[in-house]
Structures are given as C-alpha cells and as structure tokens.
C-alpha cells in the first residue's frame, strides 16, 4: 500500500514500510522544502515535524538526513530520506515552512557540521561544551575523548 502526494506538478509515491510509517527518498536535499509544503497541503495542516535525524555514512560519502513528520490525518510517520555529501555538507533550511525545524537544524550543525542555508541561528556550542570548539563529535571519525 502506498500514499500519493502532489509534488512539483507530479505525483510522488510514498511507500508503506511499516503499519504506520511511509517512506520516500528525495534525491535532492533541497526538495525537502517543497515536499514539506506538499505534505502540509495534503494533510490540511494536520501534520508536525517530529524530528530531523542525521546519520553519518563515511563509506557512502554522505550524511543522511531523515525528516520525520507525523500526519494526524493518516496516523502515520512520513519519513523523508535525503542526504548531503560529507565533503560539502550544505542543506536547505526548512524553517521558512516549518519553524519547528530550527532547533533540529541547530543540533545537526553543532554535532555533524551540516550547514543549513537560511537558518541564521546555527552555532557551535548549541549543545556541545565550549572546549570542543568547532569539532563535530557525531561524525564517525570524531574522537572527543582524545580532544579531536
């Protein structure tokens, strides 16, 4: 079973991977902004951003970004998967469409170093202690215990 969403004048198919989770892969990270707009329209604003999760994959050369939304209409997680290259971790910010994305983007910048274009509140030390400087502790090669 799948869910269809009007996205950029096309129909986007979201695959049902669990009883209450639909998944979609967005090839371009920048598409997340239009995807969020489409999801808000489809659910008649009955949706919220649950989390943005980052996962570092050095072997694939990417940092995966998982945008998890909860649709009250579908009683399901809408899991939008996308990624940015590790060597140039720049992403489009979602805060213009979903202001609740702000702390998630701040956290990912602080711990993974992904720069979100349009989020002016990004800073080192949002969570991590000041003695870690600009180090990104959740990247796989990071070793805070040995002071980077």
């Amino acid at each position: 079973m799948s869910l269809r969403l009007k996205f950029k004048d096309k129909e986007l198919e979201l695959k049902r991977v669990e009883s209450s989770r639909y998944e979609v892969m967005l090839e371009r990270q920048g598409d997340i902004v239009d995807f969020a707009k489409a999801l808000i329209d489809e659910t008649e604003r009955e949706v919220y951003l649950m989390s943005i999760n980052a996962i570092d994959y050095p072997d694939k050369g990417v940092i995966e970004l998982r945008y998890l939304f909860w649709s009250l209409k579908h009683k399901s997680i809408i899991d939008a998967r996308t990624h940015v290259p590790r060597d140039k971790p720049i992403a489009e910010s979602l805060i213009e469409v979903v202001p609740g994305a702000k702390p998630y983007e701040q956290e990912i910048y602080d711990l993974f170093g992904v720069m979100f274009r349009g989020n002016k509140w990004l800073r080192d030390g949002f969570f991590k202690p000041p003695d870690m400087g600009t180090m990104k502790p959740l990247l796989k090669q990071a070793s805070p215990s040995r002071k980077g």
């Binding site: 604003r45 009955e46 919220y48 649950m50 979903v98 202001p99 609740g100």
Partner: peptide, 10 residues
Amino acid sequence: YNEALLYGLV
C-alpha cells in the same frame, strides 16, 4: 492549536 503543530510541540 496551529502553533502547537507548526512548532512540533508534543
């Protein structure tokens, strides 16, 4: 109500 959803409060 709308703010709670927009800001993802739980």
